[in-house]
Design a protein around this nucleic acid. Structure first.
Lengths: 214, 214
DNA sequence: TGACAATGTCACTTGCCGGTGACTAAGACG
DNA sequence: CGTCTTAGTCACCGGCAAGTGACATTGTCA
């Protein structure tokens, strides 16, 4: 490599430490994207970063710390604005039902456009260890924000919204993650954009069917 | 062990080979149940069966073959009768909508009562290799049977049933698998039976809301 | 009885993993 | 100059995994 070190690099700490940390963090993302979460290990990440694995222990106190730093640094989850579609005013002008429809659609699109988020979802989904807990450190609790946003200033319909949201969210998560590994699901080709249009439309039907007709 | 071998055991092959094969197949199930699919490996299964691992290669041509045999032998998926609730006559007396409600409920209960099926679902769900393919060898294509059963002799409503079934199935799968590792999901405690009552009720609401009110 | 094949055991190689201790390189400072 | 700290490298350990080759055991049959 023949790294040309910067001539004077502040008196305190840094020489290249911060750069190395950034390389490690970025390497987590690349390994995750290319090989999936099962491959995220000390050796693989260090190899990917072109750095010795011992630095993971020195700088991040181990892999969970590195993964936590990775999770803190990336834009993995949609925020309230994204759920509202960017225009908060327009969103709040909608009825409760139409807010739900829009938010569900935006949530679906938000996680579908983030491949790393899909990996994280599937990872978090089926194992529970210090690594996946590290991923939660800064995860916006979307469900919470979601409900607050969607119910601001309107009366709630008399339905079991918790169960309803759980079902809609579960369906979205499942299909999005499924898309990663399998091109179809019960006859629906997930690799075809038209399928996702149909799913969005059907989610709209479901929300309207349940909320507008008790 | 001091196995008392049967005195004459047919002239062709068998001595205890079949028994050993059965022990191996059963061991797959035990490892899967106790430690999850990540632990299903040559060493673990052989250790569990109390048998040398080389026999997996000799008798099943490797782990995928053993897993395929395991998948062939177990009762992992509900059949049409179970989806119909056992009483085919009564089921066919229902309206299309109520058939869907009943079948979805029965499907949910069917997989929730089969811990191994939940493991298989989560396994199959998020990795795609020769082992998970082996699991598909005899998997009843539930979606297919489901549709045939539910639509026998009645007119179909003008909705996108494929997308609808995908969403309902995805939600059910996700929540059932999630229950394995995480006690709650967006605020719903999955370890509480009452939550599952709420989910069943809400699935009924959704199906009726979409199918009975275009 | 002896030859043979099939069942099952054991020891071994290879390779990857997480983790650690000892080392080198290089700038900072007196 | 020498010393100290810090960044980074290297070699190694123990453990577990998949897979294989050689061996022992045992029932069958000529």
């Amino acid at each position: 490599m023949a790294v040309a070190r910067s001539p004077k690099n502040a008196p305190g700490l840094p020489k290249d430490r911060e750069a190395t940390k950034r390389r490690l963090i970025a390497a987590v993302g690349r390994v995750l994207a290319r090989q999936g979460f099962r491959a995220v290990g000390v050796n693989a990440v260090a190899r990917e970063a072109g750095v010795d694995k011992v630095l993971i222990y020195r700088y991040f106190d181990g892999l969970p710390g590195l993964v936590a730093a990775f999770s803190r640094e990336g834009d993995f989850w949609p925020d309230v604005d994204e759920l509202a579609g960017g225009d908060r005013q327009a969103f709040l002008a909608l009825s409760f039902t139409e807010r739900m429809v829009a938010a569900a659609r935006n949530y679906l699109r938000a996680i579908r456009t983030r491949p790393l988020t899909q990996e994280i979802l599937s990872w978090r989904f089926l194992e529970h260890n210090e690594l996946t807990e590290a991923l939660d450190t800064t995860r916006a609790e979307v469900g919470q924000d979601f409900l607050e946003l969607v119910s601001a200033g309107v009366a709630l319909p008399p339905v079991d919204l918790t169960a309803f949201n759980a079902l809609i969210g579960a369906a979205i998560h499942h299909l999005v993650v499924r898309e990663l590994h399998e091109p179809n699901f019960v006859g629906l080709p997930l690799d075809n954009p038209a399928s996702w249009d149909r799913l969005e439309a059907m989610i709209g039907c479901i929300i309207r069917g349940v909320l507008d007709q008790g």
